[in-house]
Design a protein around this nucleic acid. Structure first.
Lengths: 245, 245
DNA sequence: CGTGTCGTTGAGCGCTTTCAACCCTGGTGG
DNA sequence: CCACCAGGGTTGAAAGCGCTCAACGACACG
């Protein structure tokens, strides 16, 4: 966690370009930036330990961090991948509870940190800020529920299929392409799978002609058949994977 | 869903006794109660379908409802059991999205419903209300994350152990008793297990002398050993269950 | 060209599920 | 008073699925 010396003007400039601070009044932006610190984080370094008290609001400027719960067998369950312009930790700041997840950089990153005091102070005195947070938390809660829905799918094939459909862009085009928002290993950990299983499921779907995997991008050929998979499941028809036609 | 004719005074009186409306100003209570409807719900009847647009804020007066996601194999994943004085659906009302879960009564229940309009109106004009909702949503988000943590545990034994520890009352007494907040079947569905597996794990822990199951109540004899189970796991040592000693 | 990271593939095992039958309790009516 | 039934829960046996462990492959980087 390398604290670079960065001028206030620079910080304010950075902030004005981040989605998180969209629509913020100039005045508030200035007030906030005065208490902000920017620093860089090398890949794999830890930003917040599980159970720690958070004393800052963090916003990702560049790179990516993952929020995850470490599991007793050494693996982890990813809660979210947080990229440019996104934040985390608000609920803990609001009700002052320890952080329920661990935060680690998945890439070399730049982070903005704002002291919890100024955040809480702003919440106290700025109704628009509170309203914004209300919307933010609502979205995040619904987002989390969608994740639970995915992880609750009984078969891993269905989990992957749902995940892909969840990330379909606007429009009802049955074919589309998505870029995986992180390493396959981390996506797998978000779906409650091992990376091996995730790889196998992608391989199976590719072999069935449902999708096409190109590195970190997945081309979905037939969203309709994918949807059918989600609803009715599929016994994986032994390990040969070739449907008897 | 039997709409009973209940006087405003009665509704207001009921509200004043519910935890959800604690600390509400008299004036606001009156304003709200004027738009509230109370009705009863028989066990197993559905209150909100998954994907439906919610047009009311619901608060449970008596009985219990469960929020759950129906799964393609006919089973379900329980998100929460909602009892007296608790509510649900706020995030959907706030950002106007369809309900991500289905709501069904687990017991004969009485429900209060308030039109979304008055709720949103109150949010617009009453800063204290917004602040309260911010706290509520924060708590609920953290609660949901705890549930994810439980469901992410690699073995079902650990899931049950964590669930029990999560429900430990205040104080660090190693022995305590908890009352399961619903049917075992529904608790199991909340942990991402079948009721059979849940029963087996409880049986195993009982046989080990860790807990004692009496109907819907579970007496935890040794929280320390339970915690140890959570952290290090236990291979279930074949099906005999008797440690080789 | 070595080295490290990420990903894929293979083989085997064990846990959880599935399906089935059975038990237990409370309520009901003859 | 007891037979009967329904709902909730337990127990048993079998099978499938995902995990584990290990080796290999692809690719970028110094």
């Amino acid at each position: 966690m390398n604290r670079a010396t960065i001028s206030l003007a620079q910080i304010q400039d950075t902030m004005s370009r981040l989605a998180y601070f969209e629509d913020w009044e100039k005045e508030k932006l200035a007030r906030f930036s005065a208490c902000g610190k920017q620093f860089s984080l090398t890949k794999k370094s830890c930003l917040v330990a599980k159970g720690a008290t958070i004393e800052c609001l963090y916003v990702v400027v560049s790179g990516q961090v993952k929020l995850f719960i470490p599991l007793p067998n050494g693996t982890e369950r990813v809660i979210a991948l947080v990229g440019r312009g996104e934040s985390f930790g608000e609920p803990c700041l609001i009700i002052n509870e320890p952080c329920p997840y661990e935060v680690v950089a998945t890439k070399d990153s730049h982070i903005l940190a704002f002291d919890a005091l100024i955040y809480r102070n702003e919440l106290k005195h700025n109704p628009r800020m509170v309203e914004r947070m209300l919307n933010l938390l609502s979205k995040r809660l619904l987002y989390t529920l969608r994740d639970i829905e995915i992880c609750a799918q009984p078969s891993s094939l269905q989990r992957v299929a749902r995940y892909l459909m969840q990330h379909r862009p606007e429009g009802d085009n049955p074919a589309f392409e998505i870029r995986l928002p992180g390493l396959k290993r981390d996506i797998a950990a978000q779906l409650g799978l091992t990376q091996e299983t995730f790889s196998r499921m992608l391989g199976f779907m590719a072999q069935q002609g449902l999708i096409e995997v190109r590195g970190g991008k997945v081309g979905v050929e037939d969203g309709g058949r994918l949807r059918h998979l989600i609803e009715s499941g599929c016994p994986m028809a032994s390990s040969n994977g070739i449907s008897p036609k």
